[in-house]
């Protein structure tokens, strides 16, 4: 019965305070730079058909593994294709797969997580299944799924999505379990609000901030996983130029022409780095627990 044991201001309060304009000013250069880099990558990728000097698929047997030339700024690959054009366009499929996987896993995970957090009967079963899914290393599960379903973009998205779902479910469930103990949820119960109303109007909004953060991390990790899958030969069809595929083809020639891995690797890393930095920024702003320390 402590009189002064009231915890500090609620989560939302800090969120609101931080989302106000003076809060945004304090962000610093890092996140701003990250946002700019990501924006640049997205624009380059979208405009790549017009920016690329060559057809990324056009093979020139006479120009195999050449160094940089006026017409070929980064040189050519083992089939004589223009590396520069391929790196520019390679982001398209990577980003598409990343966004697809992030959106699908967040949506499915949110739904399952809400159910698990709110209905105790289903909770045990759902969480057991999720534990089991978590136990399967995601890369192996993805490999098996792609190996079975063929190297299409959809099957790669699915392969990346399935292992991510349990993580989202756990997150949503834990937020719901914490939130339902809040007195305002009990008050809503006392006010005669129905189950769905409490679930969607009182509980679900609490999951949004952590889901935004988690979604960003999934986006980054999906792009990374796509590259690893392609690198291992279990990604999208090798005819489609993705950063992962370009690097996979460069493996054998690594000692002769390391640029085949370094350039797409650099683009990929920059892209993931900026997404992760933005995710961290979002988390710092949305997570009141870590923020509290600074005050």
């Amino acid at each position: 019965m402590a009189m002064n044991s009231v915890p500090p201001a609620s989560a939302m309060q800090s969120v609101l305070r931080l989302l106000s304009i003076p809060g945004l000013k304090k962000l610093g250069v890092g996140p701003l730079l990250a946002a700019l880099v990501l924006l640049a990558i997205v624009i380059i990728t979208l405009l790549s058909p017009w920016l690329a000097p060559h057809d990324p698929l056009e093979m020139q047997p006479l120009l195999r593994l050449k160094g940089p030339m006026p017409d070929y700024p980064l040189g050519t690959d083992p089939y004589g294709r223009d590396l520069y054009s391929r790196v520019l366009i390679g982001g398209r499929v990577s980003l598409l797969i990343g966004i697809g996987a992030a959106v699908v896993s967040v949506l499915i995970g949110l739904l399952i997580g809400l159910v698990a957090g709110f209905f105790r009967m289903l909770d045990t079963i759902i969480m057991r299944i999720m534990d089991s899914l978590m136990a399967i290393p995601s890369i192996l599960l993805a490999i098996a799924l792609v190996a079975l379903n063929g190297p299409s973009i959809t099957s790669v998205i699915m392969a990346i999505t399935i292992p991510e779902i349990p993580r989202v479910v756990r997150l949503v469930r834990s937020v719901v379990l914490t939130a339902r103990e809040e007195p305002y949820v009990e008050a809503a119960q006392a006010l005669g609000s129905s189950m769905p109303k409490i679930l969607f109007q009182h509980l679900m909004p609490n999951t949004m901030a952590p889901l935004i953060v988690q979604g960003t991390y999934i986006l980054a990790s999906a792009i990374l996983t796509e590259a690893i899958l392609s690198f291992l030969g279990a990604g999208v069809s090798t005819e489609i130029p993705t950063w992962g595929n370009i690097m996979a083809e460069g493996r054998q020639y690594f000692r002769i022409k390391p640029e085949l891995i370094l350039w797409p690797g650099l683009m990929l890393s920059l892209c993931i780095l900026s997404i992760n930095l933005l995710g961290d920024t979002a988390r710092d702003m949305l997570d009141p627990r870590l923020k509290k320390r600074g005050e």
């Binding site: 009231v6 915890p7 500090p8 201001a9 609620s10 989560a11 939302m12 309060q13 809040e182 007195p183 305002y184 008050a187 809503a188 009182h202 909004p205």
Partner: peptide
């Protein structure tokens, strides 16, 4: 607890 008994959103 007056800080938790109203939905902050």
């Amino acid at each position: 607890d007056p800080f938790r008994s109203l939905n902050p959103r």
